[in-house]
Simulated scan of single mutants.
Amino acid sequence: MYTIHPEGYQQVPEARMRMAELSRRTGVPVPTIKYYLREGLLLPGERTSPNQAFYDESHIRRLRMIRALAEVGGLPIAKVRDVLDAVDSPEEPFEVLGAVQHSIEPPTGNREGVHWEAATRRVSQLLADHGWRANVHSPPAQTLIAALASLHELGRDDLADLIERYAPHVEKIAEEDVKRVARGRGIEDTVEGVVIGTVLGETMLGALRRLAHQHATANALGVSADYEDRKRSGSGRE
């Protein structure tokens, strides 16, 4: 850390704090911090005695990332560990993205049968049509295949057909994501942006879609704009 001094820039020691202060500044309870330390999610502080340690800004940043992944992103601790391992690796952002995707994608279950085969062909064709540099064996492609296979099995081809409509819009979203992550930042911030953007971006996009669903459904059904307010206040009851 550097600060301006009359004689020029001088390096000053980074602010250090006890665990209680770390807890206060991050909002993470002390027992939870100790749990993260035991689990290896948070690096140990600088030991000053067997029972005392100092922590710094890097611990604050790390705790905020853990909270973002676990509490907002909804990842279980085991997945958070996998994602943080990817962040700590010396790999390039593209490799980190692959590791993160592999960590956060849900299991896809049974990967056989006519529905799975049809979904695989469809995703393969989608990738080819859009020239996306990905393959059907990548974690997100496998998740998409599993979703399509389930829709085919349920007889909801009308919903499966939405992937062709979604694709060009999602491509634009991805381009905006990458611009924000990569512009004018160092490798550490870029890697962190890839991780946080992938996990929390998924959360934001899902929440926006659900909000838009509420709006579109209300319009389609002729629900009044103040319906939710009246429902919360109880005035909407007959």
Rank of each mutant, 00 (worst) to 15 (best):
M1W: 02
Y2S: 13
H5T: 15
P6L: 02
G8W: 05
Y9I: 00
Q11E: 13
R16S: 15
M19N: 06
L22G: 01
R24S: 10
T26C: 09
P29H: 06
Y36M: 07
L37Y: 11
L42C: 07
G45I: 00
G45C: 03
T48W: 00
Y55H: 02
S58G: 05
A68H: 03
E71S: 05
E71P: 04
V72M: 10
G74L: 03
G74W: 01
K79T: 11
Q101D: 15
S103T: 13
P107E: 11
G113V: 02
V114D: 14
W116D: 07
R121S: 09
S124Y: 02
W132N: 10
V136K: 02
V136D: 07
H137D: 15
S138I: 14
P140I: 04
T143P: 00
I145W: 08
A149E: 09
S150C: 02
G155R: 14
G155C: 11
D158C: 06
A160D: 12
A160N: 09
D161E: 15
E164M: 04
R165L: 14
Y166G: 04
A167F: 15
P168S: 04
H169V: 15
E171Q: 14
K172Y: 06
A182C: 09
E188Q: 11
D189G: 06
V191C: 09
E192D: 13
E192G: 10
V195M: 08
V199F: 11
L200I: 15
G206Q: 05
R209D: 15
R209Q: 13
R210L: 13
Q214L: 08
A216P: 02
A220K: 15
R230C: 10
S235Y: 01
R237I: 00
